[in-house]
Amino acid sequence: MAWNPGEDVVAVQRAPKPGGAGGAYRAFGETLRGLKTTFGRMLERPVVYQYPEEKVPVYPRFRGRHKLHKFADTGLEKCVGCSLCAAACPADCIRVVAAENTPEHRVSAGERYAAVYEINLSRCIFCGYCEVACPFDAITMGHDYEMSDYNRTDLIFTKEMLLAEPLERTPLRTEDE
């Protein structure tokens, strides 16, 4: 043997030979022991959720569908169209086209704003790099996980869809739960 780790090795127990007198005992004895384990579980609380009636709560760090944000006081969009999220995306699913803000038409707080902001959710891998990349906290990963649809085109989310609040909020777990 090329390498000997010394006393860090522990040999696992060998199985008894099946069949014979021991086998006849085990066919009853061990089966009963197994059944005891099984019936013991009936006393425990069920761990399943009755999904879809009962939504599974997620943790605060859970990365679900993206959200775009506005400033609460001015109502201006946080996104300034810098395309850093699109640059960081490993799946290339974000498309940003920026335009200049004008005094008459002010959309965001910066010089420019995102005229087009699309996320193709059928390509997204929910790695959250867009959230990491965004220097203005304009895009974050929300908590929605129910995103299936009948058409692939409906999964391309536009800026308006990403800015809107979700119709139904996903239940959230507390940190200690």
């Binding site: 008894p16 022991r33 384990t37």
Partner: peptide, 18 residues
Amino acid sequence: EQYSALLDKNEIFLQRMR
């Protein structure tokens, strides 16, 4: 330990595994 109780010496499991 519960998995052990279910499997380790179960006769059918032994027949299939050993």
